[in-house]
Design a protein around this nucleic acid. Structure first.
Lengths: 240, 240
DNA sequence: ACAAATTTGTACGTATGTATT
DNA sequence: AAATACATACGTACAAATTTG
């Protein structure tokens, strides 16, 4: 097995592995995949020779990182190792510090824009008509909702997921989705939404650019999409 | 049993908040900052009317996300909400799946390169001479170590931290550092390092480009820096 | 340097709630 | 509908670590 484990040189300094690490090692050694069942807490308690409470506390840690997934009354399974923990941590950080630290949301928006813009050439080249049609429907729904003064989080999130899916980089897709969630949660604390129609319309503009097959237009459209979002942020943080 | 959760100041909730959420709410409401002391486990157990084991399990979750920081025998404090949880989760995902899913490390490298390249113009414009000198010293150390066949993780990490610090985007700096850690950990499982001299020398080339004040050269130098890293990855995954 | 006090860490037993078959 | 397997919850006792006097 690849997992390096006490190789002669560290028996003086040898600190016993934590329960968390031993459970991780169990998953690694047994080559488990996401979704595979883990031993029950009682079995782990026996195998690792620690109490149930210790196992449970370790499972809470692993579960927070989505390394395991606990299904109440049924069992524990290897998790998908998604970025839900990052979302939770960042969202809390944003809610706690965005009053004092206006950079946080700004940095987040900059990152979102940068990552989306970066794949503009690829998107223009590869985005297929069906996906564009689906995105067009979402954009239309957004405009309708905005006209009624309603927000459109579900549509917006899915739109951006489809946009970045073309990149072929799964990690970026997951990261951007996390940033979307964090932005959505934190911006709620800044008061009611504003500039809804402008934001909704910006999605149509993005699709127009894609259909015009111009990477430059797409980049510009994406940047324009973030303008009203930044403007809203500016208004909110100015009023401190 | 369920002893109705008795905090009188908020009762609009249909489904009772989890212990984790109630502790988060405590931090939010009391406007605590990272480093501020939390109540002891016994106090929280009394205040929230749940057993200490429950409190401890919630603390494990919060601690995994660095929302609280627990110090044995001393107390619990509000955490820095760093990205350590992300690093742990991604590193484990990489170690578990990189054998089967070669995209993971590739996506990670692409992201690192993209983020560093993006701020090349700013770096060329703003990186001060002192920082460049410090980075030069690091690069020289790297070359020396490489010549002895030794690796240089500490120097490499610090080099890239200094490089991206210029961006002014703290979030990007933290993310890149996480990616560095994950890459470092996961690539260990691919076998011994290779192409060390090339990689070390690439850092000098980056500094040369910065001193030549050309954003284009810097971008090219950064991309060349990642070439031997990708090459090593290719060799490792080809041998599956 | 020592000891006491405080606080988190570990263990275990028992009872209860919950999802699946 | 019942049985089973499993996670959730509580309480107590003691161990280990850290600060403070």
């Amino acid at each position: 097995m690849v997992t390096q484990w006490p190789t002669a040189d560290d028996d003086a300094e040898r600190v016993p592995l934590t329960v968390v690490d031993r459970i991780k090692r169990y998953i690694l050694i047994n080559r488990l995949s996401p979704g595979d069942p883990m031993p029950t807490e009682n079995e782990l308690s026996d195998q690792l020779a620690v109490s149930r409470s210790r196992i449970r506390e370790a499972m809470k840690t692993l579960s927070a990182l989505d390394i395991v997934e606990v299904r109440h009354g049924y069992g524990t399974f290897v998790g998908a190792m998604s970025l839900t923990g990052l979302a939770e941590s960042l969202a809390f950080r944003g809610m706690l510090t965005s009053h004092r630290d206006k950079h946080f949301l700004a940095d987040l928006i900059d990152l979102r824009e940068l990552l989306e813009v970066n794949w503009a050439p690829l998107v223009v080249e590869r985005l297929d008509a069906d996906t564009v049609a689906a995105m067009r429907a979402l954009a239309t729904t957004m405009v309708d909702l905005a006209a009624q003064g309603r927000e459109f989080p579900v549509e917006d999130r899915q739109f951006h997921q489809l946009l970045v899916a073309t990149s072929g980089n799964a990690l970026v897709g997951q990261l951007l989705d996390v940033f979307w969630q964090v932005h959505s949660l934190v911006s709620e604390t800044l008061g009611p939404a504003s500039l809804l129609p402008e934001t909704a319309q910006a999605h149509h503009a993005i699709l127009d650019a894609i259909e015009s097959r111009s990477a430059e237009s797409l980049e510009a459209a994406i940047r324009r999409h973030y303008a009203p979002i930044r403007e809203r942020m500016r208004r909110a943080t100015d009023g401190l």
